[in-house]
Design a protein around this nucleic acid. Structure first.
Lengths: 340, 340
DNA sequence: TTGTAAGCGTTATCAC
DNA sequence: GTGATAACGCTTACAA
């Protein structure tokens, strides 16, 4: 591997000058510049990332921490992060965590060992913002996705318009004047879920009609949604007229139950999900669109800016959601299950 | 940030000794060891990754290069890579490329700048293995996914049993004795697609029946599959009795056309895809399962081993595929489109 | 505009 | 077992 010294030798210049042309910093005569560039090409020289990190104390790397991906959601977020960080010439060091992994280990190796200049941390973390800040050290910029934080320094967040989105969903459902409305939430400590529930309550109150609102506690999983809904149906002995699941996966579980009982959708029961995932689009599930890629883009933008200027005030970006009305609430052709 | 020196100061030991306990290398008296460990905790010391890289010339990082993910396929592969690399204490530096990005840039920054100890490169690369090797330098271990290579040093590969899988699909289709069989391939230069086509031809020959085999050229995309099939139907003025699309996305395109024409599936037309993606599972598309996560695991295993021992002979792992018979070929309940 | 030289925080080779 | 000390390949004041 050719080193900076080799380039110096070949050009007869000092390390300082060669370094300057590599970094585009400082003033260098154009002729010199070209001489250096030429030598670099000829020697097939690439600056050692390790040495630059050590001497310059920056890594050009963003550490990304995501929950284990298998639902297609975080892939899109990741894609957004990638788009922006590539543009900013930042590499992505990615860690996935699941219930078994120790998040503090990940944080310390990313931040403590200095492998990254900034962190993007997605929601569903078992840690509170304060703990994250403590574990990651006080210096590194952090962007939190889907997690609220109160006054942590150098900590940005990308939030979702959950309240609004959930409200829209409920309004849409109430248009047909159902007597009962079931909502199926996510995990109790999930911020998104909490906000959605607030939105639901508000919308029901605003509607000033007398639907019966029933809140069922789900877990954001298909099977979980199915189970909790099935249980409810069994208990109550009847189907509700409207169901709003706080994500698409659970809505699919609800559809399973409905289809198995040959209930007409949306004739007898309307169903709405949240996310607008691939299957929702494919089968025509009415849902609330989440701009996943944009979320990633914003998170990356925030940390990229904060890397350049650490003094920036903490920013909190709110991402828009939008109701996508489809067949399961009576828009377009009638819904027919793919799972007969 | 506390440094090694701080630990030395605090313990009265030399850098050599402290370094030894950090790395678990060399002999250190147990009492000393504990003293050091204690000091590290107290100082909240983490070894600088940059310095270790520079001095030790290893990065503990695998560079992963994947096509832009939006089909859920590579997420699963990534998950597999993650599982194994986490276990081996290797971090993942991930780059996505798309037609617009310059793969050679990615390779040089990962390998040339020494950011990674090994590379995992997924298929659909515009580059040949020889070019990849050249760009990445001759030293770094590389595992190729889904790409054959001839005798590149320190280059492993993870291949798929495409031939077999495609053959199984065809056999399954021919059981009902269709008069015509359409296959829709991927891009012409795609290795997987080529092998699948070989498998198809062989199976048709072996069957020794007189199906008419028609090969349509697709692109692995839903819309592309739909378009090419629609065109065929228009030209021929009739529906074939069996369709084998070389991935699930295109098979969904075929189903679109069939459903719009209210053709009975599998009564009139049988359809098979390839991949076993989420939608295929959901709607009951017969397909060939690809062990995506296992592919990632194998790739990571290969490079992890090669990092430890560069002299290992090049290895080529063949991953099993398996036919998953579902409704679109008459298994289970009859198929009914979700997209009426 | 260019050069000198002092770090950056480890690892590893020798000695002791 | 432990300690000096020389790399590792760059960045960046400070000089010139």
């Amino acid at each position: 591997m050719a080193t900076l010294y080799d380039v110096c030798k070949k050009t007869g210049l000092s390390t300082a000058t060669v370094s300057r042309v590599i970094n585009g910093s400082g003033l260098v005569k154009e002729a010199t510049r070209e001489r250096v560039l030429k030598a670099m090409k000829e020697l097939n020289y690439y600056p050692s990332h390790a040495a630059r990190m050590l001497a310059g104390s920056k890594t050009d790397t963003i550490g990304v921490i995501l929950p284990v991906i298998d639902n297609g959601y975080y892939v899109r977020v990741l894609r957004g992060i990638d788009v922006v960080s590539t543009r900013a010439n930042l590499k992505l060091l990615i860690s996935f965590y699941h219930s078994g992994s120790d998040l503090s280990d990940i944080l310390s190796s990313l931040s403590g060992e200095g492998r990254a200049d900034a962190l993007i941390l997605s929601n569903d973390t078992p840690l509170q913002p304060e703990q994250i800040r403590k574990l990651a050290g006080s210096d590194i910029p952090i962007a939190l996705i889907g997690q609220k934080h109160e006054d942590q320094p150098a900590m940005d967040s990308v939030l979702l318009e959950n309240f609004q989105g959930a409200g829209d969903a409920v309004k849409h459902l109430l248009e047909k004047g159902p007597k009962s409305l079931i909502v199926i939430t996510g995990p109790e400590d999930n911020h998104d879920s909490q906000e959605r529930l607030r939105g639901v309550r508000q919308a029901v109150a605003d509607a000033a009609c007398d639907v019966e609102l029933v809140v069922l506690h789900g877990d954001f999983y298909h099977e979980g949604g199915r189970a909790v809904f099935e249980e409810y149906v069994k208990q109550s002995g009847a189907f509700p007229e409207a169901v709003f699941a706080f994500n698409d996966a659970m809505a699919l579980g609800v559809l399973d139950v409905l289809n198995e009982a040959s209930v007409s959708i949306p004739g007898d029961v309307q169903v709405i999900g949240f996310d607008n995932n691939e299957i929702a689009q494919y089968i025509g599930l009415t849902t609330v669109r989440v701009p996943m890629q944009k979320i990633g883009e914003e998170a990356a933008r925030l940390v990229a800016e904060r890397i350049k200027n650490k003094e920036l005030p903490a920013e909190s970006v709110l991402m828009e959601t939008a109701l996508v009305a489809r067949k399961t609430t009576g828009n377009g052709a009638s819904f027919s299950s793919p799972k007969m």
